[in-house]
Amino acid sequence: MSLFDNYFAFATTVFMGLLAIVNPISAIPVFMELTSYMDKKAKRNIATKSVIIAFCIILVFSVAGKLIFHVFGITLAALRVTGGILVFVIGYEMVRSKEDSTKSMKLGDQPVKADQGISVAITPLAMPLLAGPGTITTSMSYSAAKDVTHLAIVMLVYGVICYITYLLFIGGERIVKVIGTNVMMVITKMMGLILAVIGVQMLALGIKELLNL
């Protein structure tokens, strides 16, 4: 029972951490803008490709994390410190941001056609929105010091988040109409606060591990 509790607690921590970083709700306006000139079939196709590509990116970095550490001589403690700083900065920017994040992601005034879907799915949707530096660092940090079971949990949790993101993309227009832009901004800032706290926790743990080396 205690083993199950440990796995459940780990899964919960990973879910909250990755959910705060990915923040799929804040990605809805970006998806809607990039696919505004497409039909429903094209939008669904892009949503599917973006989450699959993002999942593959995180899978590669999570599985190859130990190998990357060995090749470049990186320690988990150093990764935690760097990742903690990075995650905190991302969270801080989300909290203090006064402008719509979609403005920074705007690709121009030219309409996006359906045959451009794969490039849009890769960037900016898959990377950096769904699998950005913060997500990669966090997933590697959660996976590197754990066994295969914990790695599987990380990927399962991220897979669930990708599926949630897919559903949010598909129902984006209805969601914005229901909750409104202001509520979405509040949710984004709450996620940013959670993210900043997680970053501080990662930083503190990394510093503690470095001091004990």
Rank of each mutant, 00 (worst) to 15 (best):
1 M>T: 14
1 M>E: 13
2 S>N: 13
4 F>R: 07
9 A>N: 12
10 F>V: 04
12 T>K: 13
14 V>W: 03
16 M>C: 08
21 I>S: 03
21 I>P: 02
29 P>K: 02
29 P>L: 00
30 V>F: 05
33 E>R: 12
39 D>N: 08
41 K>G: 05
42 A>H: 04
45 N>D: 12
46 I>R: 01
49 K>T: 01
50 S>V: 05
51 V>M: 05
52 I>G: 05
59 L>G: 02
62 S>Y: 01
65 G>R: 02
70 H>R: 12
70 H>D: 09
77 A>D: 06
80 R>H: 07
84 G>L: 00
85 I>V: 15
86 L>D: 01
87 V>K: 01
92 Y>V: 10
93 E>Q: 13
100 D>N: 13
108 G>F: 06
110 Q>T: 12
110 Q>G: 07
111 P>I: 03
114 A>M: 03
115 D>V: 11
119 S>R: 09
124 P>H: 03
125 L>R: 03
127 M>C: 14
127 M>K: 08
130 L>N: 02
130 L>I: 03
138 T>G: 03
140 M>I: 10
144 A>M: 14
147 D>Q: 10
147 D>M: 04
150 H>Y: 12
154 V>N: 06
160 V>Y: 01
163 Y>L: 15
164 I>S: 01
182 N>I: 06
189 K>Q: 13
190 M>V: 15
191 M>A: 06
200 V>I: 14
201 Q>E: 10
202 M>P: 06
203 L>V: 11
204 A>V: 15
205 L>K: 09
207 I>C: 05
212 N>H: 10
213 L>E: 14
